[in-house]
Structure formats: C-alpha cells, structure tokens
Write a protein that binds this DNA or RNA. Structure first.
Lengths: 153, 153
DNA sequence: TTAAATAGGACCTAGTGGGTCCTCTTTGAA
DNA sequence: TTCAAAGAGGACCCACTAGGTCCTATTTAA
C-alpha cells in the first residue's frame, strides 16, 4: 500500500498548524496541548511528534513556563522528504533494507539485486520537490473532500 | 520508512526470473517449485505471489501436469507501479487512506486535507516510468552490492 | 518557590503482513 | 481410464512493530 506512517501524517498537520498560528521562526511559540486541541490529535501523540521534529531540527522547542514550539524554518523551506526521513527514517522503496548487515537471504541468486536505486532516486526526487507549503496551501481551507476520495486509484 | 511489502519485492524477483528462464509470453512455463528453488524464496510464498500476479493478469498460469507460469507480457511492458498495485493495492502516500468511509477523525480541522494528491501523483508517475526490465536489467548480473548499501540515504 | 512547559525514556497493545497448510480442480501421460 | 503433477483458492497462525500512553527529570518565567 506504500503507506506513510501516521506519525508522519501528524507531523505535517502539526507543522502546518504551527505556521498557521504564527509560530514561525523567531516568532511566538505554540504549546503541545494547544496544538493537540487545534488539530484534534491526542496530546501525547502530538508531544511525541514534536519531540522527534525538534531532534531533527525542523521545529524549535523552548522549555520552561511559557515555553512551546515554533518552526525552525518557514514551511516553504521544508521539503516533504525531510519530514518523512525525520519520522520514518531513510526513504527506500524495498523491503530488504533494514537487515542491518545487509545480508539478504537470497543475496546470491537475487535477480534484481542492486537495481532499486533508480527507483528510490525517483521517489526521493519527487518528495524533495514538494514542500510543506505546497501541502498546507495558502492559509485557506482545502475543499471538503476526504483523503480516501482523493487518493483512491 | 516508506517500505514496499516483501511480497512485492518477491514478485519482482520472481517475474525477473521468469523472464530470464524464458517463460515469456507464449513460451514454455516455469513451475512454482522450480522458481522457489531458483530464487531462494520459500515455495509456498512463491506460489502465493504467483497466484496474485495471475489474478492481476501479469503472469499466466497453466494448470495440470506440465503446467506452470509464464509472463503475460514482456518485462519491458510492465511498469513497476502495476506490480505494486497488484500486490499491495492502490499507491497512496498517506495513512488515512484505508478508513473505508473516508471519515478522518480530525477531518473538520485537518489543515492539509485534500492536498496529498500532487504528492501521490508524483509518486505514481515515478513508479510508472520504471519497468521491470529496468529493474531486472539486460540478463547480466548486477554488481555485488547489498540492497542496504544501495538504498541507505 | 512554584507551576507550566519540554525532554527523554519505558512500556503496553493491537493490527496486519508474512508465511504455512489444506483441499479442490485441472490436465498430460502412462 | 487412472494417476500424478501442477495451479486455484481459501483458512489460519504468528511475530513484528507502529501507535499510543505514561512516568520522571529538567528547564524557566512569574
């Protein structure tokens, strides 16, 4: 199904919300509970996503009372690929990736060994060309269509 | 992680092997046990993949003694996207796809609602431009590199 | 000093993909 | 005519891991 993890989905939503609420670079911050309320995502989950994004340098976390999060960069400067990598790890379209030592059990006879890279490059390129600004759109609301309808092939 | 299912991976390997062993359209057939032996993939799994590919019209199954499978089309005429769709279902880069009724719990406030389609289009285009022939290569063996090395970002 | 936040873990749970097995049907060959 | 070899089509089990929750430590403004 080639699916994106839910966490990544949440990340995009949360970052879009940060931008919309003015939590821009050097601007005021937005708390995790507040973002949870605004997005409808459970609070612990929002907190988890923000922590990961913070580690990746995509958002900036300010601790202490009156703390919160804000974007490290404007949405237009954040390629979608970067968010995916931050949450899900490297973008690679194959199952034998996470073997660690890279020893595919069928390595000796695998007919397509070493040929996935153009595929992965193509995917990475496609995801790098799209920024979060493209996904979030110009502040206005998207038309009332469901994901399912949009995405079904 | 954006991972492809293992089954899809197997499908590509198996189809590449079919081509290599001359199980081309209108040609002689190759049995599932034989393919399992040749690819190093467990036999029941190979059989499962072939059944799915057969239903999708990507391979042709001939029943009975001396039966087996052969490609329905040459590899060059099979876009990678078609194999993925056959095994994994529609290509769609978002988690809220399989809700069925399409009612995302955060539907009312989701900031990125309805904006994933350009992303999905880009991915589909990338995967449609690559055929199995590109993956399998011109019969010769790929260099001895592991998937992991090739694919790590 | 206190309360409100983030930071960083540990940990549990459920969904589902991966894999196996069983039975039925088809068909060529003895 | 019979038999064996193969695919067709399910049912089913198991393990992995993503998703989600919670707890504690740390920081900092009021």
């Amino acid at each position: 199904m080639l699916r994106l993890s839910k966490l990544t989905d949440y990340a995009v939503v949360v970052m879009a919300r940060l931008a919309r609420d003015g939590a821009l670079p050097e601007g005021r911050v937005q708390t995790a509970p507040g973002l949870a309320l605004a997005t409808g995502i459970a609070e612990p989950t929002v907190a988890k996503v923000l922590k990961i994004l913070s580690q990746a340098g995509l958002v900036e976390g300010l601790r202490g009372a009156r703390g919160g999060y804000r974007l490290a960069r404007p949405l237009a400067a954040v390629p979608l690929s970067e968010v995916i990598v931050a949450i899900d790890g490297p973008i690679a379209l194959t199952a034998c990736v996470d073997g660690g030592q890279g020893q595919c059990e069928a390595q000796g006879i695998c007919a397509v060994r070493g040929r996935w890279d153009p595929v992965n490059d193509a995917i990475r390129r496609a995801l790098s060309d799209i920024t979060l600004a493209d996904l979030a759109g110009p502040t206005r609301c998207a038309p009332a269509t469901t994901f399912t309808q949009l995405v079904a092939e």
